[in-house]
Amino acid sequence: MADLYDQIQAEIAKYPDRRGAILPALRHAQEHYGWLSPEAIEAVAEALDLSPARCVAVASFYDMFFLQPVGEHVVEVCTNLSCALVGSDQVLRRFEDELGVRAPGTSEDGRITLRRVECLGGCGWGPVVSVDEEYQEHFKPEDVAPLCERLRASRPTESHA
């Protein structure tokens, strides 16, 4: 993956110390591979000239890095205080019913991963659901089924557009 290597070199140029580029490098690798597989970690380690162990040690600290495979789409429901007060638990339950899985988990067809996450910073516009890194505010239980339908019909790259 020459383009990943080049992307990481471009990130390194922004920092006086190449180690500063580890988070952007891991993010690019996750975008390329879908998750931080051993192969992805190896690519990051090589591009940064750091040990794979160090890359895993850093990656495992952060919630947004996946050290296990995830579905084609990732749906994250904030259930922290502000969202919970206005009904995010009911939204999460509806997702669990719709996808037949308890959070955190991936639907049996491997399409959609459901996670419960901490405060996303949309507290006055809750409940907030993040769908493939894009926020959807004021989310209601009745929005669950149409969203899942749309996600099932689209490939991962389409939902980013």
Partner: peptide, 11 residues
């Protein structure tokens, strides 16, 4: 890094 639950002003 605005993450304190309830806070969304910097955003």
């Amino acid at each position: 890094d605005e993450s304190e639950p309830g806070t969304f002003k910097d955003r």
